[in-house]
Amino acid sequence: MTSPIDIEGGGTSVVVDGDQQPKTKPEEAKQLEGRSPGQLMWIRFKRDRTGVVSAYIVIFFFVIGLAAPLIAKLYGKDPYTVFADERPELFDSAGVPLQPNGGISGEFWFGLEPGNGYDVFTKLLYGIRNSLMISLAVTVATVLTGIILGVAAGYLGGKSDQLISRVIDFLLAFPAQLFFIASMPVVVSLFVSPRDETPVYVRVVALIAVQWFLGWMSLARILRGTTLALREREFIEAAKVSGASPVRIIRREIMPNVVTPILVQSTYMLPAFVTAEAGLSFLGVGLVEPTPDWGQMFSKASTELVMQNDITYMFFPGISMIVFIVAFNLLGDSVRDAFDPKTAR
């Protein structure tokens, strides 16, 4: 009844039921040979077909994001060319591509964007690239902050714990989206005066900063709890008695024991940041044209020009994002199951 490696979303995995039970026995035998928890996790993960497939999909997205300039070069176009000006014969008077299905042809693989006529294929590639890079940066920043503040609060206890916990409570009461929208222009204005054109990197930095500011609390809270429980354990006490400094205890004794929640949480956080960043660009406060961005493609797709004429354009950002988010969430579930086979969900 309690199959040890049971995956949430069991429907999508063929490996879930029944046949898991016997597999754990050789694993326990292996443990006797002496394998590190990391190796065990890796063995369990490799056996989880859903997890491996989703990992490949996620890697695929990161690879095309990284290789976007290369792919665009081979393909021969860039996401900044306004084809409505360059090749007006491809569009009707309203700016909708003349050819059916959004102007998909051998030349324009994913068609042309209604309106300005950007090439959708390269735009999507660069959009994925920009969105993923921003979200990755936000994830790294929030994870680092979460580790530092969470472990500090849990290990030090007392006044610092209270202070950090209060700050967490306070920030959790913020209406996040509202705060993002209100603070984006402020953060941007810290770097450039409102009369000047805002460079792209300033917007990127501002996007990362506001999302980081309200993003680190959940991980910090989890790590605080874990550290608080660890602090009372015997091995920490032993380290203390033998004269280890707090820095050493945190680095050598506590950190290895909180790797699991950090990894699991970050696999859940990254897709959430991707959708949040896309939401901001959708509302017009994130990256703006002509910088390609996943979310900004959605705002293009929700114009009446697209909705009334040809909705093909809508599906490229839409489907790609769903595939990415589903794969990443499944990967997160698999990572969690691999680390902690007891969670029967």
Partner: peptide
């Protein structure tokens, strides 16, 4: 995994 900014415009369209 769907987002309102995809499903919403899709439903509207």
């Amino acid at each position: 995994s769907m987002q309102i900014y995809f499903l919403g415009p899709l439903a509207l369209a």
